[in-house]
């Protein structure tokens, strides 16, 4: 596996966008570009050189955790687990939902909430339960299938 490390300048740009969108001001991970525009974060204590050496030696499937999806240029959506890891920094674009909306959202349904267009973090009684994208009329659900309640 060829490891595609994200360079510090690009990391700065990502952080700038995440700061604009959600108030995030630090990503305490080495960032690696995975498939499907996914950006992964690694907190292990190996250097890039050591990881490169390891990747030539072993059949590596994954490194670290899926943190952010780079949807379009300058458009970054944190993954469910990325949100949990960065939750103490998230201060903007949070939508609080009620009991009924929660029951629907956690089963994978979209939310009929009118809001500005963009990406939002969904919060229920203090827990962040994923992110969604709004077209202005509806927030589309991005909770991964294996994290939804069974219907």
């Amino acid at each position: 596996m060829q490891i595609n490390f994200i360079k510090s300048k690009e990391k700065e740009k990502i952080l700038e966008e995440l700061n604009k969108q959600f108030g995030i001001n630090e990503i305490p991970f080495m960032l690696i570009r995975g498939g499907n525009e996914k950006i992964r974060g690694f907190s292990g204590n190996l250097t890039r050189e050591q990881l490169d050496k390891l990747s030539q030696l072993l059949r590596i499937e994954l490194i670290g955790i899926y943190l952010i999806k780079n949807e379009h240029e300058n458009d970054f959506r944190p993954s469910m687990d990325g949100i949990h890891l960065l939750k103490n920094q998230i201060t903007k674009n949070i939508i609080e939902i009620d009991d009924e909306q929660f029951k629907s959202w956690i089963r994978g349904n979209d939310l009929d909430i009118k809001t500005e267009k963009g990406t939002f973090i969904i919060s229920y009684k203090g827990d962040f339960i994923g992110s969604g994208k709004s077209n202005g009329e509806r927030i589309f659900n991005y909770v991964p299938k294996d994290r939804r309640l069974r219907k």
Partner: peptide, 22 residues
């Protein structure tokens, strides 16, 4: 088995693992 492992690592917020299939 790797797919199940990866899913559990993500859900549990594990950031320092390298998953290998060998």
């Amino acid at each position: 088995r790797i797919a199940i492992l990866a899913s559990n690592l993500e859900k549990n917020g594990v950031t320092n693992a390298i998953v290998t299939r060998m």
